[in-house]
Computed example of a mutant assay.
Amino acid sequence: MSDLRLVIFDVDGTLVDSQRDILAAMAAAFASEGLETPPRERVLSGVGLSLPETFLRLAGDRDSDTRARMIATYCTAYADLRRAHGPESSPFYPGARETLDRLAGEPFTLLAVATGKSRRGLDRLIEAHELEGMFHSRQTADDHPSKPNPAMIQAALIETGVAAQRAVMVGDTRFDVDMARAAGVASIGVGWGYQPAAGLMADRIIHDWAGLAPALDDLTETT
């Protein structure tokens, strides 16, 4: 068995806090159709899903053409906000960048992301935060079914050649945990994201980045 291990990160709500622009873009999408924006908690509870799934949850009483227009408006508004705010559109949670740098320096640890973002959105975030070369696999909603379908994790395992028992998914939502379980990998839930930690049902829960290293070592230990 290879000694390599793979740490797969969700992005929004786990590594970066993008809720300001998510909420603003969602408000623009609903306003464009003369609709009331859902409450903040309801919007954030769906972060991590693909946009079609998100708008199906939030505007499922509207027809598909209306939802398609809302998605287009959301994407335009979010892109405008990202350009206006730069890296602060999605700032790192305290300690996240330092944790990535430390893990990337470990010779037997590979990093990946599995996100509901588009490929373009992820690439621009990586560029803004100068993360080029950090991740050995980048899996996005453009190429896979929405979480919790396991396809993103399965693709990351294939791309890196790491066995499922040596991989861990780190995320802030039940979508991440259920995706990990469906793919046969362990999960770590973070306590600072967009869904309450108590409901994640992850293999481990951490409440700060200092807790990640021991949780990873425990879950990827080989016998």
Rank of each mutant, 00 (worst) to 15 (best):
A210Q: 04
A96C: 08
E159N: 12
G133L: 07
A29H: 11
P39S: 03
G86I: 07
G191P: 02
V162F: 13
R204V: 05
R20N: 11
A28Q: 04
M134V: 14
Q154Y: 07
I205D: 03
A151Y: 00
A198M: 12
G161F: 00
A186F: 01
W209A: 07
I22C: 14
Q165H: 10
L216W: 10
I158S: 13
Y74C: 15
R120E: 05
R181P: 12
A197T: 02
W209Y: 08
L131E: 13
M1N: 10
I71D: 12
F92A: 15
V162H: 14
R69D: 03
A28F: 09
A77R: 14
G184M: 00
T109P: 05
D3G: 14
R83H: 15
F92T: 13
A31M: 12
P52V: 08
P214C: 01
V43H: 03
S90K: 04
D12I: 15
Q154T: 12
R40T: 09
P107Q: 10
E159H: 11
V7E: 01
E36R: 14
I205H: 02
A197P: 00
L100A: 09
D21P: 09
H85F: 12
L15Q: 13
R124I: 15
N149L: 08
L100E: 07
S187N: 08
M201P: 08
T115I: 07
A84V: 15
M134W: 15
R181Y: 05
D203V: 02
V162E: 10
E36H: 11
L56C: 09
V170L: 08
P150K: 02
P214R: 00
R62M: 14
V16K: 03
L157N: 00
F30C: 14
K117N: 07
R97M: 03
D142Q: 00
R102E: 11
A59H: 05
Y194S: 01
Q154L: 13
G86C: 09
A210Y: 02
A180N: 06
I153E: 06
P150S: 04
I8P: 03
F55C: 06
V11A: 15
L212N: 05
R120H: 04
V7A: 00
D172S: 05
E106R: 01
R204L: 01
V190I: 04
V16I: 08
E221S: 03
G86V: 12
V47C: 06
T66N: 13
A96N: 10
L200M: 03
